[in-house]
C-alpha cells in the first residue's frame, strides 16, 4: 500500500486528529461519554492505521514491540499503584478520597489517574496484539 499517494496523504492527515480526539475522549470522560477504555482503543486505532498504511516494520521503528509491551504492563501498575498509595495514606484500597485534602478533589485525582492507567494498558495491549498478528507475515507490506 506504500505507493498509493492518496491513502498515504489521507492517513498522514488523519492520524494526528485521531490521536488528539483520543486525548479529548480521555480527559472529557468525566463530562461526556468517554474514558480510558475508549481513548486507549482510539489511540491504538490511529497507530494501527499507520501500521496498515506504511507497513508494520515502519510502525515498529516508531514504537517497538517491547515498548508496547511495557505500556501494557505499566497501566496495570499505575492502577494498582493508586490503590497502594491510598492504602499508605490511610484509606481503603482504591478509596480516592484521601488523595487530596478535600474528598471530592481526591476522587477527581483518583479517577484521572485510574483512567490514565486504563488508557495505557488498553493502548499497549491493542498495539502489541496487532503487532503479533501482523508481524507474523507482514500484513500491509
Amino acid at each position: 500500500m506504500e505507493d498509493k499517494i492518496i491513502i498515504r496523504v489521507g492517513a498522514k492527515t488523519l492520524i494526528p486528529f485521531i490521536m488528539v480526539f483520543a486525548l479529548y475522549v480521555q480527559f472529557h470522560g468525566d463530562y461526556g461519554p468517554g474514558g480510558g477504555f475508549q481513548a486507549g482503543v482510539i489511540f491504538a486505532a490511529g497507530f494501527i492505521l499507520y501500521g496498515l498504511i506504511f507497513g508494520v516494520d515502519m510502525a515498529k521503528k516508531v514504537l517497538p514491540l517491547s515498548v508496547a509491551w511495557l505500556f501494557g504492563s505499566a497501566g496495570v501498575l499505575i492502577f494498582a499503584g493508586v490503590g497502594v498509595v491510598t492504602l499508605l495514606l490511610g484509606g481503603d484500597f482504591l478509596d480516592y478520597s484521601v488523595l487530596a485534602h478535600d474528598p471530592e478533589h481526591g476522587q477527581h485525582w483518583g479517577i484521572l489517574l485510574v483512567e490514565l492507567g486504563v488508557l495505557t494498558t488498553v493502548f499497549g495491549v491493542m498495539i502489541s496484539i496487532f503487532y503479533s498478528f501482523a508481524g507474523r507475515r507482514g500484513l500491509g507490506t
Binding site: 468525566d30 463530562y31 461519554p33 482504591l94 483518583g110 479517577i111 485510574v114 483512567e115
Partner: peptide, 16 residues
C-alpha cells in the same frame, strides 16, 4: 464524586 458522567464515576470509583 462531583463529576457529571455517572458511568465514569461508577466505573472508576464505586466499582474500582
Amino acid at each position: 464524586i462531583g463529576i457529571p458522567n455517572v458511568v465514569t464515576s461508577v466505573l472508576a470509583s464505586y466499582r474500582g
